[in-house]
């Protein structure tokens, strides 16, 4: 393929076409840049309107409509959301729920993935398919059974209930991703360690796990946002306002008839900060994770 292409490439080596190509590249660049700029702006409109709403007052919104110049600017909405809307407490709750769920699901699924990827036993494939099938399950159909289960276990309206369901529910997907990643790790490394006398758990803990770090980090980023942004399980399994994660807590600022939108939006903006933070600082791993194994 490359050899047949070479003769035509030679023609380009003369000076004129090179300039032409550079020019073409430049205009192409400008074209792509402006298209991307437009899309970026369109993408940012909701973000901008949220920021804009969060510094206005509700009376002004009702009277003048959304796309009007503000009659007054009010940064106090953030403080109101934090104190009266209790966004501070809710954010704390979100972390109490998200972090143990993350640790639990990554630990358990990496164990399962290691076994599925590296041990030959009867029913290996069957087990693996069960994990994959688990990811296909729409969680809406689990609402009622899980609700009754948690009330029976005394976990209703407890952080533990939410943590367990998040951990359990995400196991399928995590195991699926990690198992496929672990299969790409060369067997020789493990065999070498085994010959040197490492136990099975040590193989997992000291060899497989560190090698799977990119996959784990990518999963952690993704799962963090999923669990952190969960709304449905939170409203089904938690009824106390003091135990709600930030998603359900901020929603309580919305009224039946009258809503103070600036305060609600300010609360929602605060609530997005942790996910934005996690994505910004872990996106390197996330992108690595997306392309795992593709460069072989």
């Amino acid at each position: 393929m490359t050899t047949t292409a070479q003769p035509s490439n030679v023609a380009y080596l003369s000076a004129a076409p090179v300039v032409q190509r550079a020019r073409k590249n430049r205009s192409q660049q400008i074209f792509f840049f402006s298209v991307m700029l437009i899309f970026t702006l369109i993408w940012l409109i909701p973000m901008f309107s949220a920021l804009y709403t969060s510094i206005r007052v509700q009376g002004d919104l009702t009277r003048n409509g959304f796309w009007s110049l503000p009659s007054e600017i009010n940064f106090g909405n953030f403080a109101t959301a934090w104190e009266r809307g209790r966004v501070g407490t809710y954010l704390g709750n979100s972390f109490i729920i998200t972090i143990p769920s993350l640790i639990g699901m990554l630990f358990l699924s990496s164990l399962a993935a290691y076994a599925l990827a590296r041990y030959k036993f009867k029913g290996n494939m069957l087990l693996y398919f069960m994990f994959v099938a688990g990811t296909m399950l729409p969680f809406q159909i689990l609402l009622l059974p899980v609700f009754y289960l948690t009330t029976r276990l005394g976990l209703y309206n407890q952080f533990g209930g939410l943590i367990l369901i998040h951990t359990a529910f995400q196991l399928g997907f995590c195991t699926f991703v990690l198992r496929n990643f672990m299969r790409t790790v060369p067997t020789e490394i493990l065999e070498a360690a085994r010959i040197d006398g490492a136990g099975e758990f040590r193989l997992y803990w000291q060899i497989m796990l560190p090698l799977s770090l990119p996959a784990l980090a990518a999963l952690a980023t993704l799962e963090f946002t999923w669990v952190f942004n969960d709304y449905l399980w939170a409203i089904v399994l938690i009824s106390s306002a003091g135990k709600k994660p930030v998603t359900a807590g901020v929603a309580a600022l919305k009224g039946q008839f009258n809503t103070d939108w600036p305060v609600l939006v300010a609360g929602a903006l605060i609530a997005t900060l942790p996910t934005v933070f996690v994505f910004t600082f872990l996106q390197r791993y996330f992108i690595q994770g997306l392309t795992l194994g593709s460069g072989k």
Binding site: T151, Y156, N157, I235, A241, A248, A251, A252, L253, Q256
Partner: peptide, 25 residues
């Protein structure tokens, strides 16, 4: 009294779970 103010629309849906939970509010 522990007061839990819940989003009006969510409340309308979730009341079915509140009432059968143990203990219910």
């Amino acid at each position: 009294v522990e007061l839990n103010i819940i989003n009006h629309e969510d409340f309308k849906q979730a009341i079915r779970t509140y009432l059968v939970a143990d203990p219910a509010p």
